[in-house]
Design a protein around this nucleic acid. Sequence first.
DNA 1: GCCTCTGGATTTTTT
DNA 2: ATCCAGAGGC
Length: 732
Amino acid sequence: MDILSELNQSQREAVETIEGPLLILAGPGSGKTKVITHRIAYLIKTCGVSPHRIMAVTFTNKASREMQERLEILVGQAIEKITLGTFHAICARILRQEGKVIGLNSKFTIYDEDDQLSLIKQSIQEVGLDPKQYAPKAVQSAIKFAKSQLLTPDDYALYTSSYFEEIVQRVYERYQQVLHQSQVVDFDDLLMKVVQLFNDHSSILSKYQSRFIHILVDEFQDTNTTQYQLIKQLAGKHQNICVVGDPDQSIYSWRYADMRNILSFERDYPNAKVVLLEQNYRSTKAILDVASSLISANIERKQKKLTTDNEAGLPVTVVETYNEGEEAQFIVSEIDKLVTEDSTISPADCAVMYRINAQSRALEESFVRHGMPYRLVGGTRFYSRREIKDIVAYLKLIHNPYDNVSLMRIINVPGRGIGSRTISELTSWAKSQDISLYNAIKLVGDNKGPQLAARASTALTNFSLLINELIQKSNELALCDLVDEVLNKSGYRNYILSEENSEERWENIMALRADAREYNTGKPEDDLTAFLEKISLVSPDDETEEKANATTLTTLHQAKGLEFPVVFIIGVEEGLLPHWRSQDNTEELEEERRLFYVGVTRAKKRVYVLYTYRRNLFGNSGGSEKSRFLKDIPQELVVTKPLWENEEQEIECTPVTAIYRKPLSQSPQRPANTITVSAGDNIRHAVFGDGVVINCSPFGDDQQATVDFPGAGVKRLLISLAPIEKIERNSD
DNA sequence: GCCTCTGGATTTTTT
DNA sequence: ATCCAGAGGC
């Protein structure tokens, strides 16, 4: 197979330029992933580069997986030798390998942001401050900023210029101290510590520099300073660094991604070659024209002109609705209409995008009301569910008893009579002795610990015995048996089963256990390390379960990288897009505009832009004003689409046209159901037939039920509105 | 030590 | 409107 044959001129250039720094500016839909994968294939197959010497870095597991899948087709087995992964996964591997020179045990554990926040709260207290006065979240953000900039607590001390920053500095210092004592790193440490290690140990750096002859970085516009430095270090010897990205799609500056990394790449690598991928294979001309006109309003960018050979297509439709309810209503009707009129379009081809998650509610209600399937992107991540975090905390503690945050999480879960009084005695004593909580608790058992009431003392001793026993078992048992042991011996199993809605929680735990089963090399200790690392760095719901024929509801941020034939962008209003918190800062405003641009460029065929006349948000409703970004789009690129009775026609220099006041075809109002249901009930639905309620949760004044219809699949319904009735269980 | 109540906040999110 | 965290009551 000829790797080059299916590429256009500039794509080919990007693939064939293998010497020296290369910057690929890839517009939306320009075949970015194709270029990266083909470039790697070209290196291996045509240039004879050993796959062992190639590193490809992504930001997300999803991107990594996608690249893996596509590469496998091109290079087959060789894929296993390529270092392909997220920044964090690659750095974790390096740290486990090399960490000992900076005093890091290869069994270190990784804290997620919840754990981080707990430790920050604790650290605020430990430096003698009040967590109420200094919002832990703000301190967390400041520490994350420092780490994104490669600033150690000492560096940060030089940088501080306000009282708050001095506070942050003190907390940061203590926080790092505890992390180190606990043999724990947070997400940002994974990267920062590797950079520091490379800085201080040139022989280790040079080992990696020599090995990796070719380095590729995806989504380069999203890198922060630390990531940038890491790449710079690694590419230091061979300088064959290929970065791919699009500054126009930089939407993560609030996570301290720095677009300047891509904008000034040529300055840092003066001999860099630049390739522009401007040919778009995704969208119609009409959509690209709108996108281009929008993004051209930004000042800080690199000029790029998007072209396409695709059809001209239909103009973008801009619609004003009365409020968010009608906005949702319009979308449901329009999808229905599109699907009916055009047999090539299904509900799954449509996506609705919004600025903030709170906007999904009105949509969901409308979709549920009409029995239309939808898939909500995001939501609670699997590993952040309480029951999963609890079990993982047990495992983390077993793996690393110095992990105080995990210990604190489960010391009284399930309740075993260790209350806040006892805990504060214990923590302050442990701190005064400069030992870990686990060791302090062990001493309580030996009567060498702090003075405590007999009851508290007994409770702590029992807890200590429990953890000890589990640590013992962890060396003998296979991982999934260890999970069972934890569930039984800790009493967690009974605890969770005695709760309401326990089925779902228990199922989640069983899913975790099933996952643990995969780790069975016969070396329990290594299995536990590997399992915990995977849990920290990979969330399983990246694995997007495709719901049959469901429309996607997503934030604009999460839409990046996706594409759909039909895209609705809602809430294109002042205060939402641009968001009010970004309204008085040019840079942030430009980022909001890029966000809009990302949304528009997701679409292949149709784009709808919606805004409301008035919107309810957070309880108070107010009149809304269409987004200033609409002014960036020339009127002739937008269509007038009077769908509904026009009560007031706005005449302005606006591209806007359809005023949507009252839906013509209001769905016939049925009397609201007054029944309530709960998990396990059998119900009959007018359309879907008989089904069983799997789960039920409050939804406003109403209930939303997840119902499994053997004939129609799993549906979510609003109880008061859905055409349902309760039926009796079959007698058996 | 556990439970209920009130107040404050509420963009975007990966690892 | 709603969710969550911390405070105070039982």
